[in-house]
């Protein structure tokens, strides 16, 4: 059973961008729910059209580039940010047969590579803005994202070792018995924290750090260029959720319901978890963030690899 490629790309893109736009509203409603308030509830039924209103507003805002900015890089940065996230989705299997890149045998590596590229979007934005807050935000982002990329890569090694493949479909298929979250609980935790840091979502949103940096790396951005950062962030949330679902929660697999729905449910639940993190947790100090990474997550992920390796060796045939 094959699905035509253009359809897959089109549907994925449409769903993804729609989802990201939807999330801008959904997150605020959910935050409101958990914080005993309403959130945007005025535009359309339940406020659902708020996302449209915001979109219209942001599209029609003046496309302003500060005179002191590095114009080329300034324009390029949000595009990089958006592109890397979207490209990552290419290897995420919605079902066994629904994946843009098909069954790419280095799928996971590709995702990690794209994440590494994503750093440029943020760093270049901070650099090109040519203002102190943006630069500070960019610098923080560089350090934070490069650090957490290490733990992210290390944490998924356990999964790769167990599945014996970098292919996302193989990884999902390898979980048909037991979801990897059980044997890889450490790796899953590390991956999730690293994912939050990689998408610089709260509580790890230090590159934006409103109360000390204005708006961090995108201080100078407005209009749709800002909108692209904004959408990229939400798309990133969906991506990390989808990866978590794929790598640790068995992907599309599940009883009764059709596979795409299972995938959607798992991803959606994780997205809600991301939002809950934002609703509940305060932002750590920058040094605390780095200490968490290097002093806790790194040993933990190394321990995870060693343990997984040891167990695999012990159970290895012959």
């Amino acid at each position: 059973m094959t699905v035509p490629m253009p359809l897959i790309i089109g549907v994925t893109l449409a769903v993804l961008l729609g989802l990201a736009t939807f999330l801008t509203w959904f997150e605020r409603r959910l935050l409101g729910l958990w914080q005993d308030r309403y959130g945007p509830n005025r535009v359309g039924p339940g406020g659902i059209l708020q996302a449209v209103a915001d979109g219209v507003k942001i599209l029609f805002k003046q496309d302003w580039i500060p005179p002191f900015a590095d114009r080329g890089v300034f324009v390029l940065a949000p595009a990089i940010g958006m592109m890397t996230v979207l490209l990552s989705f290419g290897v995420v299997p919605v079902t066994a047969f629904w994946s843009i890149a098909g069954n790419l045998n280095v799928g996971l590596l590709f995702v990690l590579a794209m994440m590494g590229m994503g750093v440029y979007g943020v760093v270049l934005a901070g650099w090109a803005s040519n203002s102190k807050y943006a630069l500070l935000g960019g610098m923080r982002a560089a350090a934070q994202m490069i650090s957490y990329e290490v733990f992210m890569g290390l944490s998924v090694l356990g999964v790769v070792m167990q599945a014996g493949s970098f292919s996302m479909r193989d990884i999902v298929l390898a979980q048909s018995g037991l979801w990897f979250i059980v044997p890889q609980v450490l790796g899953c935790m590390v991956f999730m924290l690293a994912g939050v840091a990689e998408t610089h979502r709260l509580p790890f949103d230090l590159p934006e750090g409103e109360n000390e940096l204005g708006a961090g790396f995108h201080t100078e951005y407005s209009g749709m260029k800002f909108g692209m950062f904004f959408l990229a962030e939400y798309a990133g949330v969906v991506l990390i959720s989808a990866l978590l679902a794929t790598l640790y929660l068995g992907g599309w697999q599940g009883p009764l319901l059709p596979p795409p729905l299972w995938f959607g449910l798992k991803t959606g639940a994780l997205v809600c978890l991301f939002i809950l993190l934002r609703a509940a947790l305060p932002r750590p100090r920058y040094d605390q963030l780095m200490a968490l990474g290097w002093k806790i997550l790194l040993p933990l992920s190394l321990l995870n690899i060693a343990a997984t390796g040891a167990i695999l060796l012990l159970h290895a045939p012959g």
Partner: peptide, 22 residues
Amino acid sequence: GILRTLWLTFLHMGHRRVTVGY
């Protein structure tokens, strides 16, 4: 503590909203 915070925040889903619909 972090998990407890998450849980307590999650429980707020069932609380009455304090916002007054002005």
